[in-house]
Design a binder for these strands. Structure first.
Lengths: 219, 219
DNA sequence: TAGATTGTTAATCGATTAACAATC
DNA sequence: TAGATTGTTAATCGATTAACAATC
């Protein structure tokens, strides 16, 4: 199914979007789509779609197009949405609590199985089916549940230390919401996804300013 | 200060990261840095840093490097962190409430001045200094406060409609957390930043799977 | 079969990196 | 002045788009 060459990051970043759009299209009752039609919806080029898909195999049929459900399934398999990666969330502040209850982890091939916070006050708080635990229990929890993913919703001051500890406990992936770029070059094969909401908002503001400038120039 | 050519998206996306790192470096009491030193910390090339900065002007001094505080200030000005864009948040679910209280909007040149939710039950709920308002009050609120930014934390089914309405009420920018790619091609000069947490998690899972595959091959 | 659309190769475009002259 | 490091041009690399032969 998959070819040998390394798939570029740009392609990987687009896969979830394909997956989402195909879900939408499927739910509209459409069973077949051409790269041209899909491209139009997604506002990309048909060439790009065909190139991207062919990193993983030929999922289409010449003269026909792509079977929507089948293609979605294939992309889902590539992304691993049918997986069951145990995840632990560290930091039950506002954002942490929201991420604990707001996201349907199963949909993305994950399972949230523990929430921790350094504040004693939050210990015992219910978050859906889970209960916030004190950091003192983290080691034994990791030994028992073997989380692959850690979701970090902690202040940037704590990020580096918590991260090192979790990596030592066998965590292989970090979904990092702390305002800090974690990087563990000393530990191999750890994958890190830094989500910087502040960066995202600043980039939006930059574009607002540019757009406003353009408006002014017009007048 | 700024040159004429359009700055590429790649560069813009990197600016907030420079801004963050320079903040860190400044708080360490370091007043001067060379592109080489900064590059080392940020794990990018010195060339890239110099290229990026020179999209906006020459902020360094040959033979010396960059003044940390000054460069940070300059990048902040480019990003518009000293601005005061009024923002409205729609959808006071878990994620919406977290974004309302968790983020320091002033730090990014914004000011959150209203929170709305379609559920009557949430109306009146206190979120820091703000109170959740019912959607019926949105129009008059927008006419009074003229929000430039809308933060969307609503289900994907509602996204398109709410978005159209807000655009008609003069909103110029959307920070979109709904699981839906909004696009308003009929309305010009609207800027959109889609934040797809699910996409981010899926991309992370893809990389976990690849890393696991590699591990297995080793054995 | 004829028409459509893929999979894939080739051409183009843009972004990154390297090199170096300018200059502090 | 000599050394360091920028700003900027040139070279390289990678990603996107276009084109088309393969084929359903």
């Amino acid at each position: 199914m998959s070819k040998n060459e390394k798939v570029s990051n740009s392609v990987i970043r687009r896969l979830p979007r394909y997956y989402r759009f195909l879900g939408e299209i499927m739910s509209e009752g459409i069973s077949k789509i051409s790269s041209r039609e899909l491209a139009e919806r997604m506002k990309v080029t048909a060439s790009q779609i065909r190139q991207d898909l062919n990193c993983f195999g030929g999922f289409g049929q010449q003269g026909y197009g792509y079977n929507v459900a089948e293609l979605r399934e294939e992309i889902g398999a590539i992304l691993g949405v049918n997986g069951d990666h145990p995840a632990v969330l560290i930091g039950a502040g506002n954002l942490g609590r929201a991420l604990a209850v707001h996201l349907d982890y199963a949909k993305y091939g994950c399972r949230l199985c523990g929430v921790f916070d350094s504040s004693e006050q939050l210990s015992g708080m219910k978050l859906g089916a889970l209960t916030v635990m004190p950091m003192s229990g983290l080691t034994s929890f990791c030994e028992k549940c073997r989380p692959v993913i850690a979701i970090l919703c902690i202040p940037k001051e704590a990020a580096s230390e918590v991260c090192e500890k979790l990596a030592a406990l066998g965590v292989k992936a970090f979904w990092n919401f702390s305002h800090y770029d974690i990087s563990l070059d000393n530990i191999p094969d750890v994958v890190i996804e830094n989500v910087h909401l502040g960066d995202s908002l600043m980039a939006l503001c930059y574009r607002i300013n540019q757009s406003e400038k353009k408006e002014e120039e017009k007048q």
